[in-house]
């Protein structure tokens, strides 16, 4: 599984849309199974399954009808198509609702059906453009459990674009995009080592002032990200007591120590946050005491 990680506007969907034959590439070439393809990459499109960022099911058709229509598009027909549709509906856990129109379905159910639709013609390659966009955490997990299972069963190669570090972490290899440029490509394990050790995050009143103090006193690379102070350090646990010593009492409201994520790799490469908040992440809880705002 290969991932394309980047913030909104990095060019992830553009890459996917070019491969899907929806857009022309202004430069570069596409090679599939060892052969360089002319646009619009007919051979690739015939052997690829596609999951789009937004649902592309027909709401007026039933789940079964959506799958049947897609199968016919790719030349699957007759008893073979009916068997395949039933098989995939079972895999998705949607067989009991196969004859319902999908208009009333939840986002998670539609996504699962879209995944099954993409696999109807037994493609060699699955292209997914931010496939879990808008899903809650439970639907996100269910979706990826099914992708993992189907990858094993069907022997699929997967190309997925995402802005979510946790989704990118599922990939074997990853390319990081920013502002239309490819920054780096490697395995997720190697990419994680780009960040020097642990990541320490401090919640403080004045992040800019605090970062400046820490840079001057501890000679660490303290930077402000999303209104927090972020420090990469080989031994984070040893750094934290020194931070408290360097700052006035009460300055630090909260501290986090964690191994680096792919979001940290992106920050390391660009100096900017991948996204200020993952869309499905809950809002931070604010505790107010009586008489105080």
């Amino acid at each position: 599984m290969f991932g394309v990680l980047g913030p909104n506007g990095a060019g992830k969907s553009t890459v996917l849309r070019i491969l899907m034959g929806l857009w022309h590439a202004q430069a570069g070439s596409v090679t599939f199974q060892g052969a360089r393809l002319p646009p619009p990459y007919d051979a690739l499109r015939a052997q690829a399954g596609v999951v789009f960022q937004r649902a592309t099911l027909d709401d007026l058709l039933t789940a079964r009808e959506n799958l049947l229509a897609s199968g016919r598009l790719y030349g699957v027909r007759g008893p073979r198509l009916n068997e395949r549709v039933t098989e995939l509906l079972k895999v998705a856990g949607l067989v009991d609702r196969a004859d319902e129109r999908v208009v009333t379905w939840s986002g998670g159910m539609k996504r699962r059906l879209e995944l099954m639709r993409a696999l109807l013609h037994r493609p060699k390659l699955l292209l997914m453009d931010e496939p879990t966009s808008g899903l809650d955490e439970a639907a996100f997990r269910t979706f990826w459990v099914q992708v993992s299972r189907l990858r094993m069963q069907e022997g699929l190669s997967v190309l997925v674009s995402t802005h979510r570090p946790d989704e990118a972490q599922k990939c074997d290899r990853l390319t990081v995009l920013d502002e239309g440029k490819q920054l780096v490509t490697n395995t997720t394990a190697v990419l994680s080592r780009y960040v020097g050790g642990d990541v320490v995050t401090l919640e403080v009143e004045s992040p800019d002032v605090t970062a400046a103090v820490l840079r001057a006193s501890l000679k660490v690379d303290a930077r402000v990200v999303d209104n927090t102070v972020r420090i990469e350090h080989p031994e984070g646990h040893a750094l934290i007591p020194r931070v408290f010593e360097a700052l006035d009492r009460g300055t630090v409201k909260g501290v986090t120590l964690r191994p680096p994520s792919l979001a940290d790799v992106f920050f390391h490469l660009t100096g900017r946050a991948l996204s200020s908040r993952v869309s499905n992440e809950p809002e931070p809880m604010t505790i107010r005491t009586e008489g105080q705002p």
């Binding site: 034959g21 929806l22 499109r45 596609v50 592309t56 897609s70 598009l73 790719y74």
Partner: peptide, 13 residues
């Protein structure tokens, strides 16, 4: 832009 036709456009036809 975001419907069934998009899937058809990415298909083999």
């Amino acid at each position: 832009a975001q419907g069934f036709l998009l899937a058809v456009m990415a298909g083999p036809g």
